[in-house]
Write a protein that binds this DNA or RNA. Structure first.
Lengths: 343, 343
DNA sequence: CTGAAAGCGCTAACAC
DNA sequence: GTGTTAGCGCTTTCAG
């Protein structure tokens, strides 16, 4: 009998077979819930398993089946908003399907690193990959193809020839803008996420399109980096403009928080002087001062959908390169109000 | 040559051997960077590998070595504050050591579920387990022992006979309280996290001890659930007290945010009327209104330490059941100020 | 320095 | 119903 590193015996199927006085095959059948085993033998085997504390060896099963029953989750940074929740949903869905979720961190979002990661990915013990791209990182195209594994991409560029799942960024930005327009705002500034972020790009484009369609005052887009600090900096600058906009559409809640902080600092009222809309509906947004109107992303569904699609690819479904957009919804709270007549 | 599910050929060590005109053994040696291989053969093998796109088969290696080169990360909820960052640090550290990180979600924090999870854990393809306990969940004692794998526990009860890593909750609560006391506050109320949370318990105990040692006004502890909404509810209630406390020590930043919201709502000033201290230094805390004084947890180090310890256990280090506490630090911002003379 | 043989634990295929 | 045989891909002996 083989032993663990700590010297504890580790029973194999053979040990159980000997103990129960049957063949290894019969043990295997019992272990896998096969029907046609004589009850008395089955009992003996079960007893032997219990006595020996038998656990099937995963590595052997993997080798035999050519599968790992695990899906790889690739991302640069779990702490980026939403990634943890997406991962949570992925892990839950895959667990329900009997799969584990293996984290494959890419330490550095540089193109070279991505290339290097390709090789490592192929050696990993996973049957498919969920890739959270979130930002441009060189040749994305090479990555999944080279891996020779099914891939589902989340939060990424539209035109990729892969199965893609994402929040509907365009629809989210639209309902945010429409809300402000409905309140009478004609001069809305957009604090966008970093220019290399796909979702930031999508939201900013939509801002631009809607502002133009609705004939709003033209304002250059202000690029932040998702951080509250960058929102604060832009908030300060917005205060120095003449005339001032009457509303802010921030690319995420953190930047909205920063802008609101700047306005408070200067004694301005929200939504009296400025209406503010965020994006994400992050934890605490409902309790910001004032409670933040924002676009809620259903990341549970994003993650669940990504996992479900990947699992079906793994199970042999042909890859249709589908593109699934999960709708967002506007959560109206206290940071938005009617545009004041004169500003 | 075996084929992938999608029909793509998958070269084995044997295929490479044939192609290069050597034995499988030599290929293995080259693949593992063995020294004593004639350069010309090495070249041939390398070329054959490249042509065939050879990748070692992880399952076979695992079977042979009895190791998976993966560590399991067990948690109930990734979205709980800090778990994502801890996981990030764990994944990074384990990746550097050539390990992957496998997520083993426990869908339900019930004792029965934990028991059921034990069995599944033992079959997982991991060499050790990091367990984020965070709350009481029945018989924790059984879990890791039964798994027969090295275990490191994070954020848990003190007395467990395992290797434990955690932020130093007691020290964190102490510096928060000391800060308020130094500012002259004698009447401090504590909004604690849920009673079944280990870290909430530890922070609340410390609050109680320090308040008593310093002879502060006695106040019952108010229990929230970590959410901003619960902080808001307690904030409302605190406003109705006579006399009112002059300072709030909240068990986390979200509840601090909630309390501050309540105070704003009633036109009170922070820190003029109330000083507020949080815990966590969550994203955005520096940009709350006002910027929140809080206790910063070094979760990177918590995760890194947990991973490093676990890896050394996996590599054969005897388990010393050590207990590592990572110090926190106070970040003084704008939500705390001197106690006003009369309240 | 290199190859041949054996076996890790499991299960599919084939006897009986 | 049950056992035997063979082999997944790799690496650790052991010969040469």
């Amino acid at each position: 009998m083989r032993r663990n590193r700590d010297g504890a015996p580790r029973a194999s199927i053979k040990d159980v077979a000997e103990r129960a006085g049957v063949s290894p095959q019969t043990v295997s059948r019992v272990a896998n819930g096969y029907e046609h085993v004589r009850p008395e033998k089955r009992e003996k085997v079960l007893a032997a398993m219990k006595e020996l504390g038998y656990r099937p060896n995963r590595a052997a099963r993997n080798l035999k089946s050519g599968r790992f029953r695990s899906i790889g989750f690739v991302t640069f940074n779990l702490s980026t908003f939403g990634n943890d929740r997406t991962l949570d949903a992925v892990a839950e869905a895959s667990e329900k399907a009997g799969y584990t979720t293996t984290l494959l961190p890419l330490s550095n979002p540089a193109a070279t690193d991505v290339a290097g990661a390709v090789g490592r990915l192929e050696e990993q013990a996973v049957d498919g990959i969920i890739l959270i791209m979130s930002a441009e990182v060189g040749s994305l195209d090479e990555l999944p193809v080279a891996a020779g594994l099914p891939v589902v991409i989340v939060d990424s560029d539209a035109h990729l020839p892969y199965t893609v799942v994402d929040s509907d960024q365009e629809q989210g930005a639209r309902i945010a803008m429409q809300h402000l327009i409905d309140l009478g705002h004609r001069d809305i500034v957009h604090i966008a996420g970093p220019a290399n972020s796909f979702s930031a790009q999508r939201r900013a484009e939509t801002y631009r399109r809607i502002a133009s369609e609705a004939g709003l005052v033209e304002r250059p887009i202000r690029y932040g980096d998702w951080s509250a600090a960058s929102g604060l900096a832009h908030g300060e600058q917005i205060l120095r403009e003449h005339p001032r906009p009457t509303a802010i559409f921030a690319g995420n809640d953190q930047m909205a928080l920063g802008a609101m902080h700047a306005f408070h600092e200067h004694g301005l009222r929200i939504p009296g002087d400025f209406s503010v809309v965020g994006f994400d509906d992050a934890e605490g947004a409902a309790t910001f001062w004032p409670a933040l109107t924002t676009v809620h992303q259903n990341l549970d569904r994003v993650g669940h959908t990504a996992a479900t699609l990947l699992l079906s690819l793994i199970e042999g479904e042909p890859d249709a390169h589908s593109r699934t957009l999960i709708p967002t919804r506007l959560v109206v709270r206290d940071s938005t109000g009617p545009a004041s007549a004169v500003h």
